[in-house]
Simulated scan of single mutants.
Amino acid sequence: MSQNRYSDAECAAVYRAIYERRDMRHFLPAPIDPELLLRLLDAAHHAPSVGFMQPWRFMRISCPELRKAIHALVEQERLLTAKALDEREDEFMKLKVEGILECPEVLVAALCEQRQQYIFGRRTLPEMDLASLACAIQNMWLAARAEGIGLGWVSMFEPETLKTLLNMPEDSRPFAVLCLGHVDKFYDKPMLEQEQWEVRRNLNDLLFENTWNTPCR
């Protein structure tokens, strides 16, 4: 056993947060304590980033009219997504895909401008800036679950339109609308699994050894 290992109780808490994290769509209106919100943002800010570039930027949407405008963008994309799903359109339209108008806090997670100057770890894989932002969001997600706060990641919007709406620099890019808030309860399973939209795949089917599609022994 590693001498650097956490205690059994601490390990169990980490794994519990991982397995019980949910993409939440239903929220209570009670506000989030400002100190708690700051802790969640600080958890995000302590995520790993390629070349220590820290490309994440978070915008707190406190203006009600701006929140409504973001919701309208998401609703527009929801309808377009439904049309693109063809035979699953009706099934999709029954799903609740966001809680922007119900949750007490809305954040927009974005990539910073002037990212081209960061080439450490990105020369052949420039998309690692996005991977770093995703790590920050996951940090926030796990910390939120540990604190009993729900978080929902909304990706249904036209990035350029949202960027204009938020007066963002030309070479920045929004990637997520994050809904945060207290919840009545967390879903027993991921909502899309509960609604039979998709099932969790078997890990063995996704794990290869040495070459593609070679099962691990």
Rank of each mutant, 00 (worst) to 15 (best):
2 S>M: 14
5 R>T: 11
6 Y>P: 03
7 S>Y: 08
10 E>N: 03
13 A>K: 07
13 A>I: 02
16 R>S: 00
19 Y>F: 15
21 R>K: 02
23 D>E: 15
25 R>I: 09
26 H>A: 00
26 H>R: 00
28 L>H: 01
30 A>R: 02
33 D>R: 09
33 D>N: 13
34 P>K: 06
34 P>T: 08
35 E>K: 09
38 L>R: 14
39 R>K: 03
39 R>P: 00
39 R>Q: 04
40 L>R: 03
40 L>F: 08
41 L>V: 14
41 L>T: 13
41 L>A: 12
42 D>G: 04
43 A>M: 08
46 H>Q: 07
46 H>K: 11
48 P>A: 13
51 G>F: 12
55 P>A: 14
57 R>Q: 08
58 F>G: 03
60 R>D: 02
61 I>S: 03
63 C>I: 12
64 P>N: 10
65 E>Y: 09
67 R>H: 01
69 A>C: 12
72 A>G: 11
77 E>H: 02
79 L>Q: 11
79 L>A: 11
80 L>D: 15
82 A>M: 03
82 A>K: 01
88 R>Q: 14
88 R>H: 15
89 E>S: 15
90 D>W: 09
91 E>A: 09
92 F>S: 09
95 L>D: 14
96 K>C: 11
100 I>T: 02
100 I>L: 03
104 P>L: 07
107 L>N: 01
108 V>G: 00
109 A>C: 14
114 Q>Y: 15
116 Q>K: 15
118 Y>D: 04
119 I>A: 00
124 T>L: 11
124 T>M: 11
125 L>D: 05
125 L>M: 04
126 P>A: 04
126 P>L: 01
128 M>Q: 13
129 D>L: 13
132 S>L: 09
134 A>S: 14
141 W>D: 03
142 L>S: 07
144 A>H: 05
145 R>G: 04
147 E>N: 07
151 L>T: 05
151 L>F: 05
152 G>I: 06
152 G>H: 04
152 G>D: 06
153 W>K: 06
154 V>L: 04
156 M>W: 10
156 M>L: 12
157 F>P: 00
158 E>P: 10
159 P>H: 01
160 E>H: 11
161 T>S: 14
162 L>E: 13
163 K>A: 15
164 T>L: 00
165 L>Y: 11
166 L>H: 05
167 N>P: 05
174 P>I: 06
177 V>G: 01
178 L>G: 06
180 L>Q: 06
181 G>F: 00
181 G>A: 00
184 D>Q: 12
185 K>S: 13
189 K>R: 09
189 K>C: 05
190 P>L: 06
193 E>G: 00
194 Q>N: 14
196 Q>R: 15
197 W>Q: 15
198 E>M: 06
202 N>W: 10
202 N>E: 12
206 L>F: 14
206 L>W: 13
207 L>P: 04
207 L>A: 08
209 E>R: 12
209 E>I: 08
210 N>M: 14
213 N>C: 12
215 P>L: 07
216 C>I: 13
216 C>V: 15
217 R>W: 04
217 R>H: 09
